[in-house]
């Protein structure tokens, strides 16, 4: 490219990038505008004065339950289910990729089918089942199923484990290592990047999850942030736009922070497996 060509290129692509991110910038700007200004000068990204009070009024939440509770709930659900999903998926991935046992191909096929299965199909019967377990209005339906391996993660880790030379396993076996020893001492340290990628995606999916909390939780004290944001749209607090924008911005913050810290793993994860971010 010529110098002027490069200049035009960066102007055009830069403008496109600005256009793409404008809605997000608008959300952040609106969270810092006084309530009467948000829609009066909606096109503007610059508040006449910085109104941090939105963050205070938004944080107060609904009927005595503050966003401290909602964030705490989100973190409890997200962290526990992520730990469960990653550890259980690693175990299963190793089992399916590196041990030969009766029915192995069958279970691998089951996993692939589960991966393709639309969630809509099992949402009703799972609800009925968890209702019978007495799990409604608890975090259990949102956490426990993740301790049984997530097909997407199992698949991704299996791809990773297959790149580890079998000679390593053989050498460890000769040194007296059991299959369990091989898993913990050789495989786990080598698949750390895959573990990180899976943890990040699990974090995103659980943090954004809306339909499951919507179905299973009915007491606002148990609400995660995603569900709590919906309360801004319900009735009484309909006028607190600033507070709503402020809490929406805060709810995106963990996701964006994780993205900037772990960018490399995310881009690799999407490129190699097509995981949807």
């Amino acid at each position: 490219m010529t110098k002027s060509g490069r200049f035009t290129y960066h102007i055009l692509v830069g403008l496109l990038a600005l256009g793409m991110t404008y809605p997000i910038l608008w959300l952040v700007a609106s969270s810092l505008k006084p309530n009467n200004e948000i829609f009066a000068t909606a096109y503007s990204l610059i508040p006449s004065r910085l109104e941090f009070a939105n963050y205070v009024t938004g944080w107060q939440g609904f009927a005595g339950t503050t966003f401290a509770t909602f964030f705490k709930n989100s973190f409890i659900i997200v962290i526990i289910s992520t730990i469960g999903a990653v550890i259980s998926s690693a175990l299963v991935a190793y089992g399916l990729a590196r041990t030969r046992f009766f029915g192995q191909k069958f279970w691998f096929a089951c996993m692939m089918v589960t991966m393709m299965l639309p969630h809509d199909v099992i949402i009703v019967p799972q609800y009925v089942m968890f209702a019978k377990f007495g799990w409604l209005s608890t975090f259990k339906p949102l956490i426990v199923p993740h301790f049984f391996g997530a097909p997407f993660f199992i698949f991704l880790m299996m791809q990773f484990i297959r790149t580890i030379p079998r000679e390593l396993d053989e050498a460890a076996k000769i040194d007296g290592c059991s299959k369990y020893g091989i898993f913990f001492r050789i495989v786990v340290p080598l698949i750390v990047p895959a573990l990180i990628t899976c943890s990040i995606f699990s974090f995103y999916w659980r943090w954004d999850d809306f339909i499951n909390p919507l179905i299973y939780l009915n007491n606002p004290e148990k609400y995660p942030v995603s569900l709590a944001l919906k309360l801004f749209l319900d009735g009484e607090s309909l006028n607190n736009w600033g507070g709503m924008f402020a809490m929406a911005t805060l709810s995106l913050l963990p996701v964006v922070i994780v993205f900037f810290i772990f960018q490399k793993y995310i881009v690799e994860g999407i490129s190699t497996t097509g995981l949807k971010g």
Binding site: G95, W107, Q126
Partner: peptide
């Protein structure tokens, strides 16, 4: 031994598949 080890490692998925996927699908 390897059969058993394989099932030990795969147990989380197999149990989860039977309880949280297969049974719900059939009941659905």
């Amino acid at each position: 031994n390897e059969h058993i080890t394989g099932y030990v490692f795969s147990a989380p998925f197999i149990l989860g598949f039977l309880i949280f996927t297969l049974y719900p699908i059939l009941s659905s």
